[in-house]
Write a protein that binds this DNA or RNA. Structure first.
Length: 585
DNA sequence: TAGACAGGAA
DNA sequence: TGAAATCCTGTCTA
């Protein structure tokens, strides 16, 4: 193969891949590429991916073959590829499955077809304590209680192990999915949900049964978790990130399965009920105050669980990993919208919960109509003259804040509100002071952490029924799962470069719409500031999913007259809607 | 024996 | 890099 100027991929010897995204086959290429490489940068024309050992192992685990990767290179690479790159990919790819962990009676055996591998592994000092007995050249017995820690240490030295040691079945708890919800609506798994459950379970009792499923918000993670539990048919422990999420799980299980109310327990601060199906919060498990920690750890041994589900695995606190390391004999299912963790504990997810088993591309769901089509725009707002002076003089710490609170953003918000006066709009921001200021200017209701639950419910209700069409929300939007759906989101500031947050916020508006299945996501960014860099990092995840951000510049600030007109039009629209609603009732 | 509220943790 | 939200626990009131 020689130089192919029209091909879009450049694979470099530092394991980075440059990808020209304007290529006609970009969608297909991204689909394969994102399975074995991580997106690092995604500006307009050329995206940078990085191939890491972990990304290759995850690819191997979710069923990608080395041939598929090499075919992609063959077909689309601009230059000849340095042999060391191919070698490295082959090497890492082959490493997955080189070592397997199996069971023999109550002993765990580390197996390798190649005796030199085992010798190499146990030359590491950190590995020596695990040896119980060298059975022969290719079989080493290891202490069973260290299953989790052994896997962690193995991955640290670069040898992921395929865990085939099987699981304890757990106490049986047979139940089925209903054919219709309690409301009478018919209920059935969607095709991709069935595929997800099957790929989690695939391979039978030893191979299948532990891993992570990656699904976008709104794709029905709960339903998939429930279906997996039903398939296994054993007592199940579900760990969630908040009490609201826990209650939602309970409600969904009651709604969609034959499980009785007296079979489900909530284990949280409010009540600590352990039943065949128990839903607990991470908080209570990871909390360590005196003797309480022991009580909560016992939760894992309290019953003979056949499955442990980790909801929102990307939020899993480090202490829960420690507990999880000890319970490797139980089936584990991780659910998440993104495997990315800003704290870099991805390898712990890989070893202690399991490898990625299935990944639904957002774009695919969009095509089949399960989620709305999103139009994402980044609008760059110039700083005012005085702001520029302040910005230049400030230290790095205050610079970020100054950029986030740029005055010009408010004007843009007003203009967007005018444009979307027929839509349900969420305005999301990071700083309370900024949100308050905006609130004074546009007279829309606001929800923050301080807003009482009663007040929130009332506002949610009004927003859902359309009595109000614009809601300002603070960081509550990241956690509150009962936040109503909107079709327009305006992000006026965000937390540094959190990709995870960006994904969550977009997820807010992706639920399918009744009429036009179209959503709008605007991200307001101060021009020529740190915020522009943060925004780039934030958008990486969405670019990975195939969303293109269109970047536009805001027009110069407008007069107060515009503001007044916009306010008037919002007020009259609200009044109109209220009247219409009353008439309907 | 709930519910409200404040304070601590991470 | 820092602000804001969460959950949990303990105390007080009716």
């Amino acid at each position: 193969m020689a130089y192919q100027p029209n091909n879009p991929l450049m694979i470099q010897s530092d394991m980075s891949v440059l990808f020209e995204v304007d290529h006609p086959d970009a969608t297909t290429i991204r689909h394969v590429l994102s399975d074995f490489a991580e997106l690092e940068k995604s500006p307009e024309h050329v995206h940078t991916y990085r191939i890491t050992p972990l990304s290759l192992w995850n690819a191997a685990a979710s069923g990608r073959t080395l041939e598929q990767i090499l075919d992609l290179f063959e077909q689309y690479s601009k230059f000849d590829i340095a042999p060391n790159v191919i070698q490295e990919i082959r090497d890492q790819f082959d490493r997955f499955g080189l070592l397997t962990l199996t069971r023999e009676g109550d002993r765990l055996i580390l197996v390798s077809q190649d005796p030199s591998i085992l010798r190499k592994v146990f030359r590491f000092k950190s590995m020596k304590p695990y040896v119980a007995e060298w059975i022969d050249e290719v079989h080493v017995a290891v202490t069973a209680s260290n299953r989790g820690r052994l896997k962690q240490d193995l991955i640290k030295i670069g040898y992921p192990v395929q865990d085939l040691a099987g699981y304890t079945e757990g106490s049986p708890l047979p139940f089925q999915l209903r054919e219709s919800c309690l409301s009478g609506e018919p209920f059935a798994l969607r095709t991709y949900q069935t595929v997800a459950v099957d790929s989690f379970y695939a391979g039978g009792s030893s191979r299948g049964g532990s891993g992570v499923l990656v699904l976008p918000c709104g794709a029905g993670k709960t339903v998939i978790g429930i279906a997996a539990a039903a398939k296994i048919g054993a007592e199940t422990l579900i760990l969630t990130s908040s009490v609201t999420a826990a209650r939602q799980w309970i409600a969904e299980i009651l709604d969609k399965t034959t499980v009785r109310e007296d079979q489900i327990g909530e284990y949280s601060g409010a009540q600590k009920v352990i039943r065949p199906i128990t839903v607990a919060t991470y908080q209570i498990v990871s909390r360590n105050s005196g003797k309480a920690v022991q009580d909560h750890l016992n939760l894992f041994n309290e019953r003979n669980w056949g499955l442990i589900i980790y909801d929102e695995v990307h939020l899993l606190p480090a202490p829960v990993f420690r507990v999880t390391a000890d319970i490797q004999a139980r089936r584990r299912l991780g659910l998440t919208a993104t495997l990315i963790r800003e704290d870099g504990l991805e390898s712990d997810v890989f070893t202690l919960i399991g490898p990625k088993k299935y990944d639904v591309p957002w774009k695919e769901l969009e095509r089949s109509g399960w989620i709305a089509t999103a139009d994402c725009r980044e609008i760059r707002v110039a700083l005012e003259e005085q702001e520029q002076i302040n910005y230049a003089a400030a230290n790095a710490r205050t610079q970020a804040r100054l950029a986030a609170e740029a005055n010009g953003k408010n004007t843009v918000v007003k203009r967007l509100l005018q444009k979307h006066c027929e839509d349900q709009v969420l305005i999301i921001g990071q700083y309370l002071s900024q949100l308050k200021k905006l609130q004074q200017q546009i007279q829309a209701p606001m929800i923050t952490g301080q807003t009482s639950m009663k007040n929130r419910d009332e506002l949610y209700h009004k927003f859902r029924t359309g009595a109000i069409h614009c809601l300002i929300v603070s960081k509550v939007a990241n956690f509150a799962i009962d936040l109503p759906d909107a079709n327009v989101a305006i992000q006026i500031s965000g937390q540094f470069g959190s990709r995870q947050e960006e994904a969550q916020r977009l997820g807010r508006i992706l639920r399918p719409k009744k009429q036009e299945n179209q959503a709008y996501f605007y991200s307001l960014v101060a021009k020529n500031t740190k915020e522009q860099e943060f925004a780039m990092n934030r958008q990486r995840f969405l670019t990975e999913q195939g969303y293109a951000y269109r970047i536009t510049e805001a027009l110069p600030a407008e007069s107060d007259q515009v503001t007044k007109e916009v306010n008037a039009s919002i007020a009259s629209l609200d009044a109109y809607r209220q009247k219409k609603r009353k008439l309907e009732e």
